[in-house]
Every structure is written in C-alpha cells, then in structure tokens.
Amino acid sequence: MIRRAYAALPGPTAARVAASVGIVAVLLVGLHFFYEWLGGWLLDSGGTVG
C-alpha cells in the first residue's frame, strides 16, 4: 500500500521523496494532536476539579 502510494506520486524521485517527507510530517503532527486529545479524554485529563 505504501509502495503503491509512493509510486502514485507525480514528478521525479527527488520531488517524490520531498512530498513523502511532507506527508509523513503532516501525518505525525496530526497523530500527535489525536494522541493528545485521546490521552486527555481517556488516561489523564490533568487532575483538576470542576
């Protein structure tokens, strides 16, 4: 799946690599915020009252 997605990217290899790095970075940042939200809701909201 990942190989197919990479192959579907347009342009020369350098452009594909740059686009891949960009997409992965965006995904990681999105995942970070998702994990933060999930952790605050599920594991530890900070412990304050009210």
């Binding site: 605050g40 599920l42 594991l43 530890d44 900070g46 412990g47 009252v49 009210g50």
Partner: peptide, 25 residues
C-alpha cells in the same frame, strides 16, 4: 465535578488534586 474540594476552609490548607485511578480520568 465535586467542586466542594475547592471551597474555602478555616486556617490555611493546601489541596492537591490529580486523576484517579492511575491511567484513568
């Protein structure tokens, strides 16, 4: 939501609050 723990008390008190049990909110 038990905000009574925030209410004023006579004297000087320190109230520490945190999630319980561990790994749960």
């Amino acid at each position: 939501a038990d905000v009574w723990v925030l209410e004023p008390r006579q004297g000087a008190w320190l109230t520490l609050t945190t999630c319980n049990p561990e790994y749960s909110a």
